[in-house]
Amino acid sequence: MSVLTISNLTIKHREETLVQNIRLSINEGDWLALVGESGSGKSVTSSSIGGLLPRELIISSGSIHLGGVNLSSLKEKEWRTYRGKAISYIFQDYQGAFTPFMSIGAQFDEMLKTHLNDSKQLRKSRALECLNNVNLPAERVYKSYPFQLSGGQLQRAAIAMATILKPKLLIADEPTTALDSITAAHVLQLLAEQQKQTNCAVLFITHDLRHVRKFANKMAVMRKGEIVESGMTTAVLKHPKHAYTKALIAAIPSLKQTKERLVTI
């Protein structure tokens, strides 16, 4: 069943078209990777799903449907019930993911209080369970302030927070770019586990084709605001059709031949 359907989405800033005719559909349990160079419109697309576009950027045509709801027609107040509960985000900058002067626990609590009518104890035990699920020392992290945790811990806590309400769609906007590659692999592994448990759809924005190959079952390639190619990951990676996709794949340095110079795109 399709969780998210984006049809013919065009986003403009004044006269300039940033994103054109985007068509995407993500099913339950899918992990869709959106790849492409910087400035290709990946993040603009992902922000538009959560209604987070800056005021100056306008959706000029097309629609975004989540389940049966047309998100692009929601009012600011109606958004609140969807954000966090139906759609959640993980961002690149783990250090900025939590408000610095509030403990992690307080921020979990605030989110749970917004969406649920649970008692205080129940909220806490939910948060602790969720932190436990991402292999964090739950009690300690719950009491900690963001600066007391490491980057990997923070990003795992961010994943816990993003999945605690079992959203239908999880948008991960370059979640590992700021982490070292070992921590990144751990974090993505965790994300994959969380996805299996909640069966949510993941929209994964990245630059790293290795992660795409390992985790995503579908992928879409963006360039200059348009999706140039999309399909099953294995098919796209093995038999790229578009010249840009071929160039992207050719740019991955091979471990076997190191003599040639890297290809510039």
Binding site: L52, G84, Y89, A97, T99, T114
Partner: peptide
């Protein structure tokens, strides 16, 4: 980002401002 995250978590504007 943390203000954005509070927002995407569904926290209301008044609470974001206040807390």
């Amino acid at each position: 980002d943390y203000i954005l995250i509070a927002k995407v978590n569904g926290v209301g504007s008044m609470n974001i401002l206040r807390r």
